[in-house]
Design a protein around this nucleic acid. Structure first.
Lengths: 128, 128
DNA sequence: CTTCATCTACTACCTTGGTAGTATTACCAG
DNA sequence: CTGGTAATACTACCAAGGTAGTAGATGAAG
């Protein structure tokens, strides 16, 4: 089991993962392109990061001509889950209700969003 | 406006902050003591970390005899908020409902917790 | 063949969190 | 006064994220 620690992704790594998840396969140039505007990084920065990420088990690559084509090695679900869990544990000692309640009480939520959540909770309750 | 970036606290730093929040004032020895068992750190490790944290604006200290008495310089609210927001932005592009819904759908929640949340949402809705 | 663009590889830094040893200081017991 | 103890200060590392320059290889254009 590789047990890739998927709960500690830096900002850049996460952004890169998102590109990979969206495109499923991407060359360094593709990723660099996708990130342009938002972040103005050197091409080599992206390349280096991708190599590091592969070493960490976050991505894999295959060779196409002279280029490396990267693809994600972990799913976005696992990452989202891992990172959320990490925060949940660290901040709320694993108490989910505490976390949700904190989220809900400390910021703006529209009536629509609340209704959506109400529906979600109702559904969830039924399936217990 | 010190603008202390309060969204990136390491595991140890957060644990230390929790001790400070709980005790309001604590010496290095106190913190070290509080952490013992859970984590077996050298006394100097705690001392160093506290010094670093003070440099980062997370804590302050006053002198009592030969000892430093530390107190938090940022509230637990701000930290909880900052860290949650950071994750919310990074993972869910700031969409709160998405985050809550992810939390609710990907793990176990008891009927009681769901009811609690329902109530919370109802309250929230009223005050809009 | 030569030149140029394009890739990857390697190396190098910087920052921050984490961890801890050594040095120094200062107080306290005898 | 003399040890010993307990504090902080200083220094030193390591790992990981982030950033990028330089070198070397290779393919394409002329």
């Amino acid at each position: 089991m590789s047990k890739t620690k998927v709960h500690r992704l830096g900002d850049l790594q996460l952004k890169i993962m998102k590109v990979l998840w969206d495109s499923n396969e991407a060359t360094v140039a593709d990723v660099h392109q996708s990130l342009a505007g938002e972040r103005d990084l050197a091409y080599t920065t992206v390349a280096t990061m991708l190599r590091k990420m592969e070493a960490r088990g976050l991505a894999r690559h295959r060779v196409d001509g002279r280029s490396f084509v990267y693809r994600p090695a972990v799913g976005s679900d696992a990452v989202t889950r891992g990172m959320s869990d990490h925060l949940l544990d660290r901040l709320f000692e694993g108490n989910l209700a505490d976390m949700v309640s904190h989220l809900l009480t400390t910021r703006e939520v529209s009536r629509e969003e609340l209704s959506k959540l109400e529906k979600l909770i109702a559904e969830r309750k039924k399936s217990l």
